[in-house]
Simulated scan of single mutants.
Amino acid sequence: MADNGLFVYGIVPSDVEPTSDAEGVGDPPAEVTVVRRGDLAALVSEVGLGEPLGRPADLTAYQELLDGTAAVAPVLPVRFGTVVTGPDAVADLLDAHHDRFAEALDEYEGRLQYTLHGRFDEQALIRAVLADNPAAAELAGQVRGRPEQASREQRIRLGEIISQAVELRRETENRELVDALAGTSVANAVRPPSSELDSVHVAFLVDGDREDEFVDAAEEFARQRIGLMRLRLLGPLAPYDFVSAHQLAG
């Protein structure tokens, strides 16, 4: 294995077995195996040390393996792209962080991540900003029907007002989302916006026996905002946003 290493996906209890059809990263997809050390184990697959990683298919394989594992057992995702030299290096890592990994696996037993990601409807948002802000409404009136160059200053000021209003609205919506789902989740992590029209982006850690309650609460939040934003509920997922302290350096 001089030219190969092991791609590490996640830390699991030692009794976890990958399914026979589990596929790892690489082209063709590699077989997923387990390196065990006492009561801990790591999901791994062989990868060429010079092989480029990061293709969409690699990210999909990484996520599908971890999300599928999380549905049946606790798993601590390891940062994508972590490659070690071989089984001995994996065993050393498991030994070095045994107590921390074991404690985290107990903490995430029976828990899953859901992520709610929303985007504002641009026109609906602008209408709401103009309705709430007389200065913005006045500027909008001044630029309406005028050439862009002739109304450049007013357009810049209007854009700044709208941008600030979007940031404030996003903060409010994220806060209201967290409040609305706090009763059906055990933890949350607000993610930074991925675009200027992001409305909410929050990950939640949910007990498996409360998934239905959580989904119902998320759907009610979405119903109250029909027309203003479009929302996607992603999950169940591995607890990516809640185990960063346990991730291994790449």
Rank of each mutant, 00 (worst) to 15 (best):
97 H>A: 15
201 H>D: 13
104 A>L: 09
116 L>Q: 10
54 G>Q: 06
132 D>M: 09
177 L>Q: 10
62 Y>N: 11
98 H>P: 10
106 D>R: 03
88 D>C: 10
205 L>E: 03
147 P>M: 01
245 A>S: 04
134 P>L: 03
137 A>V: 01
181 L>F: 08
88 D>T: 09
225 R>N: 04
31 E>I: 15
158 L>P: 03
170 R>P: 01
67 D>E: 13
171 E>W: 04
187 A>E: 05
96 A>P: 14
144 R>P: 14
231 L>D: 08
75 V>F: 11
162 I>E: 00
57 A>W: 03
79 R>W: 07
74 P>R: 06
116 L>A: 08
175 R>C: 04
100 R>Q: 07
93 L>N: 07
169 R>M: 12
127 R>L: 00
120 F>E: 00
152 R>L: 15
246 H>I: 03
125 L>S: 07
249 A>F: 12
119 R>C: 04
194 S>R: 09
222 A>F: 02
47 V>F: 08
95 D>F: 10
230 R>N: 14
144 R>N: 15
206 V>C: 05
169 R>I: 07
147 P>I: 00
108 Y>S: 06
246 H>W: 04
54 G>R: 07
163 S>T: 11
172 T>C: 12
172 T>A: 12
181 L>R: 03
180 A>S: 05
120 F>A: 03
91 A>P: 11
220 E>Q: 11
166 V>C: 04
85 T>H: 14
67 D>I: 10
26 G>H: 06
153 E>M: 14
159 G>M: 00
209 D>P: 12
247 Q>F: 00
183 G>I: 00
185 S>G: 06
63 Q>W: 03
70 A>E: 13
213 E>P: 05
23 E>H: 15
151 S>F: 05
200 V>K: 12
161 I>Y: 08
63 Q>S: 07
18 P>C: 06
36 R>D: 13
26 G>S: 10
44 V>Y: 02
1 M>L: 15
8 V>K: 05
184 T>S: 14
249 A>R: 13
74 P>K: 03
34 V>P: 15
6 L>D: 03
246 H>L: 04
183 G>K: 04
162 I>L: 00
5 G>H: 07
188 N>E: 13
245 A>D: 04
202 V>R: 03
206 V>T: 02
87 P>E: 15
11 I>G: 02
114 Y>A: 00
102 A>M: 00
223 R>Y: 09
198 D>F: 15
234 L>I: 08
16 V>P: 06
180 A>I: 05
230 R>W: 07
211 E>T: 12
224 Q>N: 14
103 E>H: 09
56 P>C: 07
99 D>Q: 12
124 A>P: 01
102 A>E: 00
26 G>R: 01
62 Y>F: 12
105 L>P: 02
235 G>E: 01
29 P>N: 05
132 D>G: 15
184 T>E: 12
154 Q>N: 07
97 H>N: 12
185 S>N: 07
234 L>K: 08
186 V>W: 04
47 V>M: 08
32 V>R: 10
97 H>G: 09
205 L>K: 01
213 E>H: 05
247 Q>S: 04
3 D>Q: 10
